[in-house]
């Protein structure tokens, strides 16, 4: 007899382990972030199955919604194309880390197996545990027994917000460039006209599709720099001889 909870666990459990592995193994940081977001959604489903619906929603809102989006914003600021270097700075570092992690998992699992052989499960169905419902029970505990911890948490959040503002603030060391100076610099530079928009004369008008020049080659100035670099790697510019032959045709 399989309960719905068992089905959920055996479907989402392996998926969460796989996505955790994917997070560790993915070369690009953005892929790691997406794997982690999926993992957090799996954990939210587990919380819902374990009679903690309040925590399940908080997990989705706080972790998947706020924390992961903050991670993605910082990745955009730091550079999405920044990938890890694969050179080992310490010899045997990766093997040592892997064996340490494996040993740790074995020790943890065997300790768990020894400690919880056949644990009697009380469960949260009893009315005195959960109150009338989970949110009510959690709120009752937070605002009575854990009230002081809750207030300290508020102080912690304010301190963290102030610290983030102080750390991310940057004093302006050069005077602000006015619109007039920008216009003058543009007309003194190589390109007085605006940059071409993405997708001009191309098959799609998505922002990652470069505009096409009159000879059919993509215009690198029409897309963001990281996409332009990918484009240059995938479609190297045509050699000059080919261009001449096409012109003769």
């Amino acid at each position: 007899m399989t309960s719905p909870e068992q089905v959920l666990f055996w479907v989402l459990g392996p998926l969460s382990v796989l996505s955790a592995l994917g997070m560790v193994l993915a070369r690009k940081a953005v892929h790691s972030a997406l794997f982690l977001a999926f993992d957090m959604l799996c954990l939210a489903a587990f919380y819902a199955a374990e009679q903690a619906p309040f925590l399940a929603f908080v997990q989705v809102v706080v972790y998947t919604g706020a924390v992961m989006m903050l991670f993605l914003f910082v990745l955009m600021l730091v550079g999405v194309d920044a990938s890890d270097s694969l050179i080992e700075t310490l010899r045997g570092h990766r093997f040592a880390a892997l064996s340490a992690g494996l040993g740790f998992a074995i020790v943890l699992c065997s300790a768990l197996g020894g400690a919880l052989g056949d644990q009697a499960v009380v469960g949260l169905e009893t009315p005195q545990a959960n109150g009338s419902d989970n949110v009510y029970g959690v709120a009752k505990l937070i605002f009575t027994r854990y009230l002081f911890a809750f207030e300290v948490t508020g102080a912690l959040l304010i301190t963290a917000a102030l610290a983030a503002m102080v750390l991310a603030h940057r004093e302006r060391t050069t005077p602000k460039v006015t619109q007039r100076e920008m216009a003058l610099a543009r007309f003194r530079g190589n390109r007085p006209s605006p940059l071409p928009g993405p997708g001009v004369f191309a098959r799609h008008n998505a922002v990652d599709t470069p505009a096409l020049l009159p000879d059919g080659s993509p215009a690198p100035g029409s897309v963001p720099t990281s996409i332009a670099e990918d484009m240059r790697r995938d479609h190297p510019p045509l050699p000059a001889s080919v261009m001449v032959e096409e012109g003769e045709l």
Binding site: S16, V17, A20, V24, A97, A100, G101, L108
Partner: peptide, 9 residues
Amino acid sequence: AILFSIGSV
């Protein structure tokens, strides 16, 4: 426990 170990690795 498995997820924690993967995270520590």
